[in-house]
Write a protein that binds this DNA or RNA. Structure first.
Lengths: 227, 227
DNA sequence: TAAACTCTAAATGTTGACATTTTAACGAAA
DNA sequence: TTTCGTTAAAATGTCAACATTTAGAGTTTA
């Protein structure tokens, strides 16, 4: 049984091998299939995935840019370790960026985009009623937040959050039983956020989002006593 | 005369060639020696710099992670174009991140670090008195802001700002005669920021920094009428 | 026993050649 | 004249071999 067993199928359909490797490794890191702190040995992985080291190295450089990997010259690359401290820092950063994003979104989102937000929230509400339902599914939560961030129309914030921060947050939640967010609060807060956007009230939107993220941070702070 | 003439001396002393190339190209992009929107032809550059394409490609991947370069599969890499819109988005992002950073810094900076801030400001004041003096030199301004950001002790914010945003802002200022910031206001605002940190007042620090960056954004908005 | 040295194996860094895709110039047809 | 198709050159993507550095096992020495 090989170390990177289930990775073996790099058979997606991206345009380049290097891009596929990036996405394959990204997922493997987020799920923990490649463990935190693990060394990414180029030789082993290349053999495992049946590719040459060139594209693999490029993928590693890209993951470095996403903060999923830390690289030390002449020593190689390791998967980032999500210490309690780092996770809390992630949420502080997210608070700053996403509260600004929602303020901009309140000014710039189209009504069609706001409709989409409504549909996502309604789906969340429905899923909660049907499936036992104390939780908003993580995937739906991500979709909601991504829609808000894209609504800001700010490419810089969008990239910082979606391309970098969210990957680390997904990684944390996936590997720490935070797969679902607490429902009652989250859904209510999502509604408040959409309300503020609908009212075209940037300040209210910002405050509401800030509180939403601070609550998430507090839940984590309470539960991550160790590390 | 070659296209990348003055780049020819990749003779620094980083540990790896790829790291040197990253830093060389970074500087060339910031200064505009390689123009905005220019295509980075691997073959030409490799010959020009007398290196093989491998390390060059790795450097390009890293610059991609810094948002200095945009890469399209099968088409190659181009230097980012700093449109008016993008620059204003940069400052909105900076406002969000740096105001959070200074709030954290107000709680976490050591008194030695605060002393350093004082020394930097005093130097700014002195330089202004001596050299005709309507401007804070850009280099000193960067040092001041970097010290504040590092003072936050938040590695995520630190990386987002220093590793990514600041490069783009330096690039913009270097290529658009914003090499120096307006003095009177900036120096006073720097003093206010240090005061707030000294008082261990995160909220005051945050508001003060926010205003400082909004002012900079407004100056840019007024002067960049075109594009 | 502990520290320092040597040497070997394994890993990362670098190179040049090969493969595939894109681009654009050229010519033919509507 | 414009459009479409062909083709050759140039560019990006990929690979495998070579070079250099690091890490660790084993040995020697204080």
């Amino acid at each position: 049984m090989s170390e990177f067993a289930t990775l073996s199928s790099v058979t997606n359909s991206s345009s380049t091998l290097s891009a596929e490797l990036t996405s394959t490794l990204r997922d493997a890191i987020i799920t923990g299939e490649i463990a935190q702190g693990a060394k990414l040995s180029e030789a082993k992985m290349a053999k495992e995935l049946d590719v040459s080291r060139g594209p693999l190295r490029e993928a590693i450089r890209r993951l470095e840019g996403m903060n999923l990997i830390q690289h030390i010259p002449q020593q190689g690359a390791r998967v980032v370790v999500l210490s309690r401290e780092l996770v809390l820092q992630l949420y502080d950063t997210r608070e700053a960026l996403e509260s600004k994003a929602v303020a901009l979104a309140a000014e710039k989102m189209s009504s069609q985009e706001i409709d989409q937000l409504h549909r996502e929230i309604d789906a969340q509400s429905k899923q909660m009623r049907e499936n036992s339902g104390a939780f908003v599914p993580a995937e739906s939560d991500y979709r909601f937040h991504e829609m808000v961030v894209r609504g800001s129309k700010n490419k810089v914030i969008e990239r910082a959050l979606i391309h970098e921060l969210y990957n680390l947050i997904k990684m944390f939640r996936y590997q720490n039983d935070f797969a679902n967010t607490s429902s009652t609060n989250s859904l209510v807060e999502h509604r408040q956020i959409v309300y503020a956007i609908e009212q075209r009230d940037p300040i209210l939107a910002e405050v509401t989002m800030k509180r939403h993220i601070v609550h998430a941070r507090e839940r984590i702070e309470r539960r991550m006593l160790i590390k």
